[in-house]
Design a protein around this nucleic acid. Sequence first.
DNA 1: AATGTTAGCCAC
DNA 2: AAACGTGGCTAACATT
Length: 561
Amino acid sequence: MRIAAVAEAEGGGRLRELAEEGPRSRGAVWRVGDLAGAVADHEHRGEHGPQAEPRRWIFADTAEIYPALLDRGVRIARCHDTTLVEALLMAHAGRFGEPHALGAAWARLHGRDVPADPAPASGEGAEPQPALFEPDRSTLPPDADPLDALAEVYADQQHRIAALPHPGRFALLAAVESAGALAAAEMAQAGVPWRADVHDAVLTEHLGPRPPAGTRPPVLADLAEQISAAFGRSVNPDSPAQLLRAFEAVGHPVPSTRSWVLQRVDHPGVPLLLRYKELARLHSAHGWAWLDTWVSRGRFRPDYVVGGVVSGRWATRGGGALQIPKAVRRAVVADPDWTLVCADAGQLEPRILAAVSGDSGLAAAAGSDDLYARLAGSFGGDRGRAKIALLAAMYGQTSGDAAALLPRMRRHYPRAVGYVDAAARAGEEGRLVRSWLGRTCPPPAWSPDPADDGGDRSERAARDRGRFTRNFVIQATAAEWALVLMAAVRRGLAGLDTSRGSARMVFFQHDELVLHVPRALAGDVTAILRGAADEAAALMFGGTPVRFPLDIAVVDRYADA
DNA sequence: AATGTTAGCCAC
DNA sequence: AAACGTGGCTAACATT
């Protein structure tokens, strides 16, 4: 059963049941004063009856409507997010990036002027969500009824999906993208358990006591002084331009001040500078100011942007959740009597390549826990060289050791290399490429013009585009595998006994999932994860011999995973 | 003063 | 080892 839902003023809303025989047929419409309560009622109605199939809620924008439901303690199992699906469908049609909010989709259906999407709500910092639903940010014109428009756009999307070359795959993509939006809101609500006192201790240990705002902590101030002394002049180590001049002046000209460049320079200032760069990064990106802004009441709440990356990976808005340095992960500590279950899909991208390309040799290697070790035989027994060769094939590396290894890679794993080579060729020729489930890359910024070819700039642009599309088919498929995994984990968690507390997903990072779990449930959650990984592989690739092993660690501190 | 760009480093 | 993909974020610096 499918139910479209829209929020209205003061916590109310309207619901419409979409009849099974055809999404265009009109079902009953309810106006409710308490949308969260009504959703909860319908979510659980008939849960154990003969039709145990859970509802699928149709939302225009899950990120807008679901946080307020969660604040009322209402969780739902499945949804279809028309905004996210519209973006996927438009990209598939070669119209990546066009407006995809409900108002835009409705306007396209009716031949109206297409409104720009609303600016995303900025949830800057760790402030709690408002208690009621967001004010109406719809781009629908006043003469369009939001609930009618939602049902209509949903029906249209169903038809467009059915007309695609692989409707089943795309339907799975639409489902897991939408499930991702539910998971993102749930993770934002749960928050990552974060010990501010431990974080502060890490900072103090590396930087000295917290300085007044806007001034360098003692360790950095001291290093800056020593650096100036080493160069015999006043240098701001935060200024690449000043550093370039300082190295020039002491007879060590450098092309840049990147760490790996400086490492090869023999000058007493270098070790000080490398230390300074490392600590300055800690201080500026994840120091006390970050702690004040992003951690409150023992939780870090990243603002995830589902589908925020062209490849379908998630992005985050503020807080840098996807770049938490290893050193700071010591502050991620489970609550007393709880534990963290950390799951990491090992060697995900090469396994994806094995599955999508159908290369039998690579698939055989991907049937083991260490794919690279199985490849070593093709590279004189050298696992390291095998890894470099495979990564080079997927990333389009053309220089260094990797280039020399590619011919051998091509000889031993022809279909795998052929798959990414074909994607690269498509990119160089200005064509689009798609992930396994149908996520489509943006069109090129340039138009390939054979008459005006040969310029260095266009050749270079074509090569860059080829590397992008080469990687896209792999990275985007890996991202959707992770989404399928996450959706399966959500379903598993929903079936757990909650009498001892509820296990929650709290952090997601590309190919890694962290759950905060009552200690007594750690075993159940581990089993759910293992089952979800098998389910993701089966749903996406059927009977592939490729395995997708999860490294699972049950730990008190994330840094120990 | 506000806004945009660059260099650099963090994550996967 | 450092011309290999996707990003976010900050301070310095440039522009309006």
